[in-house]
Design a protein around this nucleic acid. Structure first.
Length: 415
RNA sequence: GUGGGUAUAGUUCAGUUGGCAGAGCGCCAGAUUGUGGCUCUGGAUGUCGUGGGUUCAAGUCCCACUACUCACCCCA
């Protein structure tokens, strides 16, 4: 027996309708906000992620599925969706189309990690990317899109946390202030924080070690060191969100784990799915396009974990769609009627009515049992009597009521 | 990479001081020959995760390995 690779999941034929439900809601919402779909390859040159995501990040350092192909090129299964979109934006000359360019994607992403609740090695993300606008309205637009999707799915719960980590200019003065503050306490912090001190001190704010938390509790906050531009951008964003009636809280400890973020960062956090509560994370990344070889282009977007989203819906007993079962099951009355019933089913299908019939030679009673369990809305028995009279009784399984009509008119009746 | 828990039928799980492998759910069939859900009857399905050890005897005790799972780190 060969089993499924660690950290991956099948979507069985009995639950795939839940994914269709989610994906339909996602596509509809994205379309309503003026975003159109972009599809990029499942793997890219490794170099793209090194430069795009950042060489100091955990994703790049220890989580990528990287291998040499048969031509000795180093390629990597995408660990996130944004870098590939940036590459496509540059390579496809999207900057020559009317700006801003608003894109969304649905894609599998791959990270080599220890799986746990809400974390897989292959998971699926819905993401949006808005290129060519530096306005805080663009930041707000992607946040409102996410919030709208949640509401449409019946969710009030994931809380929007926002922060600003500043542009490279404010980052310089902030890092200096943070290092100065931490300097004396450095020997009391955990090993990884001591490492972060040199490479990326900002990340220390995100540490969950109780000892480090104590120390960072009074640490300088990025929002207190923003330059004038970043400050007014962040304030304007908040007033836009308030005007839109979007609840949020400013959370100075949100710093995000990807190096491309500048300025606004945000997460939608749920407490319905255990330790991995971030269902959506994103922000602004004005340096990404130039970092991977394009002209400087302001951009903002987010990634949303679909497995986590589905888990939240199920844990909160919210609707997750309906099984996709044909409208009607036609039962041959006896073995002799199998051929005629088979023809009838195919005639209905050719008129656009979804229908099924017996494929295993079961008794009529057993067929009804099957139809009941599988959840067909209607059933009808087809046999000698129906063939002679040209009439058939359509039974509504919900309440057992029957409606008689001509066999030749079935398709119209079922519509 | 680090730590805890678990591993028995398709699935959820019992299995006592070591003594014939079990239940619920599901699946298949039937309950006077053309109608489901309820009920009843019958049936199929096991390398007890793998390998070793102790013992007259191991699902049960010991060791190793593997897988799964939760948590840390980090992230969706």
């Amino acid at each position: 027996m060969i089993n499924i690779p660690k950290g991956t999941k099948d979507v069985s034929p009995f639950i795939s309708y839940k994914w269709h439900y989610l994906e339909d809601a996602v596509r509809k919402t994205a379309a309503d906000f003026g975003f159109t779909e972009i599809r990029t390859p499942t793997f890219e040159h490794t170099e793209l992620f090194l430069r795009g995501v950042g060489e100091t990040t955990d994703i790049v350092n220890k989580e990528m599925y990287t291998f040499l192909d048969k031509g000795s090129r180093s390629v990597t299964l995408k660990p996130e969706g944004t870098a590939g979109v940036a590459r496509a934006y540059i390579e496809g000359g999207y900057a020559e189309y009317p700006q801003p360019v608003k894109m969304y994607y649905l894609t599998p992403v791959f990270r080599y990690e220890r799986p746990q609740a809400g974390r897989l090695r292959e998971h699926h993300q819905f993401g949006v990317e808005l290129y060519g606008s530096a306005s805080p309205f663009a930041d707000a637009e992607v946040m409102i899109l996410a919030k709208t999707l949640f509401s449409r799915l019946g969710l009030t719960e994931p809380v929007l946390n926002i922060n600003s980590i500043g542009c490279p200019e404010c980052r310089k003065t902030y890092n200096a202030a943070l290092r100065e503050y931490l300097g004396n306490n450095l020997q009391n912090m955990c090993a990884s924080c001591r490492e972060r001190f040199d490479k990326n001190p900002l990340r220390i704010l995100d540490c969950k070690e109780p000892g480090c938390r104590k120390i960072t509790a009074g640490a300088p906050r990025t929002i207190d060191y923003l330059c004038d531009d970043c400050k007014s951008h962040f304030e304007k964003l908040q007033s836009i969100l308030r005007a839109a009636g979007i609840e949020f809280k400013v959370n100075p400890s949100i710093v995000r784990g990807l190096d491309y973020y500048t300025g606004t960062v945000f997460e939608f956090i749920s407490d319905a799915i255990g330790a991995q509560g971030t269902v959506c994370g994103g922000g602004r990344y004005n340096n990404l396009v130039s970092e991977v070889g394009g002209k400087p282009t302001p951009a903002v977007g987010f990634g949303m974990g679909l497995e986590r989203l589905l888990m939240i819906l199920e844990n909160l007993n919210l609707p997750v769609g309906e099984p996709e079962i044909p409208v009607i099951y036609i039962a041959p009355a006896s073995e002799a009627d199998a051929e005629k019933a088979f023809e009838l089913v195919n005639a209905l299908r050719s008129k656009g009515i979804s229908a099924d019939s017996d494929l295993v030679g079961r008794s009529l009673k057993a067929q009804m049992k099957y139809a009941g369990k599988r959840g067909y809305k209607f059933t009808a028995v087809f046999g000698g009597a129906e063939e002679e009279s040209g009439k058939i009784k359509i039974k509504r399984m919900e309440d057992g009521s029957e409606y008689e009509c001509a066999v030749s008119e079935m398709a119209e009746v079922l519509k």
